[in-house]
Design a protein around this nucleic acid. Structure first.
Lengths: 204, 204
DNA sequence: CCGCTTGTCATAGCGATGCTAGATATGCGA
DNA sequence: TCGCATATCTAGCATCGCTATGACAAGCGG
């Protein structure tokens, strides 16, 4: 029985190696450079070995993405808990999120642009995905007032994600990045109760 | 000279054909189905003809994207001008944006996920791109107060883009889509002046 | 220690991709 | 009608994700 346990350990070790090397390769040369041949060469095994661990290349990307969500959650949690009041906590969380995307662009792509086969809103959603979203929930809860905290958290996540991706692809000027984040935080922490009174907008 | 003019007309006509067919193919079967061979077959020419019109496949995607920005601008303008007050105008614009992304998913991908080689914030930015952003500017200007209208427009665009993409990829529950848009509009139209007073957040 | 079974691994190959070089056909001006 | 320039196609390259097949090594019973 010992030999089988050792084999399983080796398999698990090799699986982690594949994920790690795929991530490194993606981070240094981009995902388009992550081919099964190059990956096989780097781990010093032949291509078919990859397919004994993963259903295909997409599954490898998904595994990298999952690792990314775990790290993102840790970063968000650290930032949030280091703050001293709710507003500072939300600000720190959003900046931590933006920094994570900036420092790990390919990892972020795997998490939120590629790898659609990760189940997100379903009962079998992996824990790291739920945990990352939970960080947003925690940070935004203090500002929900009568609004649904979950929906508000979705907006916070979606908004910062949109800003991050558009900025990173050059579609929004990088120079305004900090101002955008600050203004977004102002909006998210503004008291609820709808916009300005309709009369101020001159409607009929 | 007439023959040359005719040739140029034919070339322009064929170029438009390529873009149109690429878009149709992408919209019906997804961008992964848009291969140069299939594209060549559909336009009833051989592959190299594509390369006499475009530098490569990416340039074809970029051309489709440019067409998309022109149509998006038209949709946003229609929605904005149909409204009777600024708040309704912003709401209509954002809903028109979300509808456009929902009804033309592959076109939207070409515009904002693929085709990074379109120059966005530079002096040679194509007019359709500037026009689309200008629509956001127009719609949000009434709510800028003392804030920079351009930065606020960037936030509006980025936020709705993030919500749209995360919703479409299943990363946000589709059921909340309308509530998210409504809540986002509330936030964007809320009076400026920062979040709630610091004392309310219990900071120290 | 030997012979067999088991399972792990690499070689080689398939169909398809984006793109291009060389050959061929077309249609113009004279 | 001829010669040439242009336009177009055929065929091919390197590479992609993925897999069928067979060689090889490890571990078992004796």
């Amino acid at each position: 029985m010992s030999t089988q346990e050792r084999r399983e350990r080796e398999r698990a070790r090799r699986r982690r190696l594949i994920v790690t090397v795929a991530r490194e390769l993606a981070e240094t040369e981009g995902w388009e450079a992550v081919t099964t041949r190059r990956l096989a060469e780097r781990i010093e095994y032949s291509q078919p070995v990859l397919y004994s661990h993963f259903a295909g290349k997409d599954a490898i990307v998904a595994a990298v993405a999952l690792e990314g969500f775990a790290e993102l959650t840790a970063e968000l949690g650290k930032a949030r808990l280091r703050a001293e009041d709710p507003r500072e906590a939300l600000s720190a969380l959003i900046h931590a999120y933006a920094d994570f995307a900036r420092l790990n662009p390919s990892l972020y792509d795997a998490m939120l642009t590629l790898a659609v086969d990760l189940p997100f809103g379903r009962p079998d959603t992996p824990a790291p995905l739920q945990a990352a979203f939970a960080e947003f929930r925690e940070a935004i809860a203090a500002f929900a007032d009568d609004r649904d905290t979950g929906v508000l958290a979705e907006i916070a996540w979606g908004s910062v994600h949109g800003l991050v991706t558009l900025t990173r692809s050059g579609r929004l000027p990088a120079a305004h990045h900090e101002r955008r984040l600050a203004m977004l935080i102002d909006q998210l922490t503004a008291p609820a109760g709808g916009g300005r009174p309709a009369s101020a907008a001159g409607g009929g």
